[in-house]
Structures are given as C-alpha cells and as structure tokens.
Nucleic acid binder design. Structure first.
Lengths: 114, 114
DNA sequence: CCGTTAATTAACGGACCGGTTAAATGTAGG
DNA sequence: CCTACATTTAACCGGTCCGTTAATTAACGG
C-alpha cells in the first residue's frame, strides 16, 4: 500500500480526517483548534494530521509553539483524475458527450469545428 | 468507519482492487478471470470482490457455477462529489469561475444573462 | 530560570486487513 | 451418483490502524 493513490484514498477513508479537511477549507488552523470539535485526544489528532501530511493533503508551518495546517488539494485532483476514467459509467451527460466525440472521430468529413 | 464514504474510499485504497475495477471497465468477468493477472490466491481475490461489493462498486450475478462481476460506478460519483467541494483549491479555471460567480452575485444590476 | 502552553513521541491494546492453506459449498454433466 | 470445476468459508498469522495515557520536546513570557 505504498503507491501514492493508495495513500491518498486511505487518508480519505477516515471521517475524522475528512472533517479536518473540511475545517481547513475555511482557513488554516492549529492542532488544538482542529481538535476542538472532536472528543478524541490530542495525540490522536496529531497522528491524523501526520497521515494527511504524508498524503500531501495538508502542509504545515510553525510559528512559535503553534503548528498550523493548511489544505493542499492537489492530491484530490489526482484522485479525481483517476475516478474520471469511470465517469461514463455514471454520468448520462458524459455518455452523450462520449457518443458525440466518437461520432466526430469516426466522421472523416474533416469539417472545421468553430 | 461505517459511513458510506469511508467504505468507498477504503475500498479504493488498495491497488489490487483498483486494478480489478479497471479490468471491469472493459466488461463483466468471472472470479478466475479477474484473478488471472495477479499472483495472489483465489480466496484473496474473492474477498477483494466482497469489499468492492460492500462499497457498492460492483454488483454480481450468478449463472451456473460462475459468478460474474459488473462495475457499478455510482459510488465513484459520490466520492467525486465530495472532492468537488475542494475543487477551487486546485483548479485554476474553477478559481476564475468562482471569482466570476461571486462578481455576478455581488452585482446588484439585475441584468439578464442570456 | 521556571512555569505554562502547544504539540509530538513512546508504549500499549484491541480491531481490522490482506494474505495464506485447507475444507466446504454449489452446480454441471457423464 | 460421482467427478470436476468455480467459488466461498474457516482458521490462522503478521502487520497496520486508531485510540488511549504518560512522558518528552519546544518555545514563550514573567
């Protein structure tokens, strides 16, 4: 389970971690601030943050004794990109677009599309 | 870890399972067919399939002694929908669109947009 | 320097995961 | 019915995950 995508999905497979990401979407926050909504210990939060950091989903900076976390959504883009390959299996619009593209591709009439 | 999204992400966090989904994108397949590319035992594949089924990512049908699996991408739509909330953090186009929408919303000129 | 505050590390326990092999189940078919 | 084939279930094992409490590190501020 060492490939990048696996690490990302595994990080997202925990509700506490997803809630942390949701909180970080509103702005940076320190560990204690992030821990506040949950009734689990600070060390537990600290390790969730490490998991998120390993997945590249957050970056962290230190100022004095506070360590603030910041959302880094690039891994989400990667994960979405992977899922995108299956879009035609759920998205009716995509299915139509797909058919349209296939039609155009098969079409040898070389008419310029504006 | 019982909420739907967690189960889906956890199912996707394994490279073997993602490879199985990739194979199923090309069409239904039996357990032995799915197992063929991997050098892990059949029972192991069988359990991966159960995980995927629990996540709703595949459905299964039986005909004689063969059980064929079929891709069900709806959970991928759900997962994508969740990630979509963070799109503005990675997608430059979305950032521009977002700014545009905010501008329009702030605009009190009520001019009809064709 | 010393106390306080913020956060991490260490050590531990219980649950789950992903693999194995061996046994069981279910169905087709001579 | 008996055999062969496809698949699942059972039992086990080592490793990882998620939580705990206690101890440690780091920095500020009187």
């Amino acid at each position: 389970m060492s490939d990048r995508l696996s690490v990302i999905f595994a990080a997202l497979a925990d509700p506490t971690r997803r809630a942390i990401l949701a909180r970080l979407a509103e702005g940076e926050a320190t560990v204690t601030e992030l821990a506040e909504p949950f009734d689990i210990s600070l060390p537990a939060i600290s390790r969730h943050l490490k998991v998120l950091e390993n997945a590249g989903l957050i970056s962290r900076s230190r100022s004095a004794q506070w360590r603030s976390s910041r959302l880094e959504a690039e891994p989400l883009r990667e994960a979405t990109a992977w899922m995108e390959r299956y879009r035609r299996f759920w998205d009716a619009n995509f299915t139509r677009l797909d058919a349209h593209l296939k039609r155009m591709q098969t079409d040898r009439t070389t008419r310029r599309t504006q």
